[in-house]
Design a protein around this nucleic acid. Structure first.
Length: 308
DNA sequence: AGGGCCCATCGCA
DNA sequence: TGCGATGGGCCCT
């Protein structure tokens, strides 16, 4: 798949952009610098959920990116980017609290059953093995692009329910190609009006109600479907590790294979593959970009806090 | 063959 | 202690 990893260190050090404000240095650099570093730390702590770029932070404290980078590192001992990641990791670890019992509880309720608070209710069905092997032959899929809190989303609908959800980064073509690759034999028909309602429901938490669950269709191997079903048991605002999922589906040593299956989840966001983390709490990977994973996690943290 | 992994170990501060 | 780096095992496509 096209893994566009947007996690490159984002240091745009242009030759001309490095000149610090000379006037500011003239009187009391240390006090001034301290104030700026403090300001930067507060800024990052405040809005790590949005994953501000180095430039955002620099602009906020009134410095060039490279100057802030150097200054911050000198004072805080690590780069702004590293500091942001530390905050992020700390938050992710908190999400993992009670992760084992979370999956157990979900199982007792019945996967995706009613009773999970603050989440999109989902009923799912898997395609038959024959349908899976056909790679979508004879399957009519409609698709449409719609705005979402995480960039433009591509929704793919099968007659029985939502079959695919992805995101647009550079161009729509790439996102659509990604979906076509999953079911090469299926016919794809653009029907924006047809998928608009689905998109609206998926991304507007106000519309999430147990009495009208979201219907999704899971198309994959046996193993993959079991993994995806297990993902539906992780409540919003919580997280599990790859090995937790492996244990949950009765393959305690298959954590790595679980990782691969999670990565192939066709209905991202609705099947919450973003709630699976490495054992250390690190985010480790996301088909639609790690930054987006972070953004979704942050968005959910905000939702949970909002109606706490 | 090679992954969105994990655990044990081993060096460094 | 607490990290980062490494090596070997593991299991599904």
């Amino acid at each position: 798949m096209n893994d566009k990893d947007d996690e490159r260190p984002m240091l745009n050090i242009q030759a001309g952009a490095t000149a610090p404000p000379i006037a500011a240095r003239a009187f009391d650099p240390s006090v001034d610098d301290y104030a700026r570093v403090k300001c930067a730390i507060e800024f990052i702590s405040d809005r790590w959920r949005m994953q501000p770029s180095l430039q955002d932070i620099a602009a906020h404290v009134g410095l060039s990116s490279s100057h802030l980078h150097q200054l911050f590192k000198r004072w805080a001992g690590l780069t702004p980017k590293a500091f942001l990641q530390a905050l992020t990791l700390d938050h992710a670890r908190r999400l993992l609290r009670d992760r084992a019992s979370i999956l157990d509880a979900a199982y007792e309720v019945g996967l995706s059953g009613p009773g999970r608070l603050h989440d999109l209710f989902v009923t799912h069905e898997a395609m038959t093995p024959g349908e899976y092997k056909a790679r979508g032959a004879g399957l009519r899929l409609t698709f449409g692009f719609h705005p979402s809190p995480f960039g433009e989303a591509l929704l793919v609908a099968a007659p029985r329910g939502l079959a695919g959800l992805g995101f647009v980064d550079a161009d729509r073509t790439a996102a659509l190609a990604d979906m076509r690759r999953r079911w090469p034999q299926a016919s794809f028909v653009e029907d924006e009006a047809g998928t608009a309602g689905l998109a609206f429901r998926v991304f507007d938490p106000v519309t999430w109600r147990p009495n009208q669950p979201m219907r999704i269709v899971l198309i994959g191997t046996d193993f993959e479907v079991r993994v995806w079903e297990a993902l539906l048991g992780i409540p919003m605002g919580r997280a599990a590790t790859y090995s937790d999922i492996a244990r949950r589906i009765g393959r305690p040593k298959a954590a790595r294979a679980v990782g691969a299956a999670v990565g192939k989840n066709p209905v991202s966001f609705v099947v919450p593959c973003h709630r699976v983390l490495g054992a250390s709490g690190a985010l480790t990977g996301y088909h639609w970009g790690l930054t987006r994973k972070q953004a979704i996690i942050g968005w959910e943290a905000g939702r949970v806090a909002a109606d706490g």
